[in-house]
């Protein structure tokens, strides 16, 4: 398996992006936070009539809500990132990685004609890369010390 070639040739849909969590424009931040906490994810998409208008992440929560001292009843569009950089399911994985690195993003919405169909996270991409060399990563002892201090057994 040639990693460089796979990155160029394989598409974002091959990573099976996770289902997006969606809040509607006008909902309060508290709803988004509750949804993120329940689903254990770091980002929600903000939509208006099924079209994506913004993204709200943990970083936005910290910087634009808590640091500014806004109440959690603030409507989400005031603290989301509008018009996020997104990818199409047919885009290559290397293209998604390039967007992430250029903007320093942790999540990219996967979008078809402005309609969100998934979320691609940096963890998912790291997992994809690790799948290319499983024996190097998964066949590891729990400690990095190669030797036991003493022989096991009674």
């Amino acid at each position: 398996m040639d990693l460089a070639r796979n990155l160029k040739g394989e598409t974002v849909s091959r990573l099976y992006p996770s289902q997006p969590l969606i809040v509607q424009r006008g909902q309060p931040v508290a709803d988004a936070v509750k949804l993120m906490r329940e689903k254990k994810v770091g980002c929600v998409l903000v939509c208006e009539q099924r079209r994506i208008v913004g993204i709200f992440t943990e970083r936005d929560l910290l910087r634009r809500v808590l640091a500014q001292g806004l109440p959690v009843t603030t409507p989400i569009e005031e603290c989301m990132t509008p018009d996020p950089v997104s990818v199409h399911p047919k885009d290559s994985i290397s293209c998604a990685i390039r967007y992430m690195q250029k903007g320093g993003y942790r999540h990219l919405p996967v979008v078809i004609d402005d309609k969100p169909v998934g979320i691609l996270s940096v963890k998912r991409i790291v997992h994809y890369l690790v799948e290319h060399f499983p024996t190097m990563v998964y066949n590891l002892p729990p400690h990095s010390q190669p030797y036991q201090p003493k022989r096991e057994g009674a």
């Binding site: 460089a4 990155l7 690195q101 942790r106 890369l129």
Partner: peptide, 20 residues
């Protein structure tokens, strides 16, 4: 961070791809 690892791995695979 996960992004550091991503940056490292993609640079490495790119270099390896170019060398190949």
């Amino acid at each position: 961070s996960a992004r550091d690892m991503l940056r490292f791995l993609t640079r490495l695979s790119k270099e390896a791809g170019e060398r190949g």
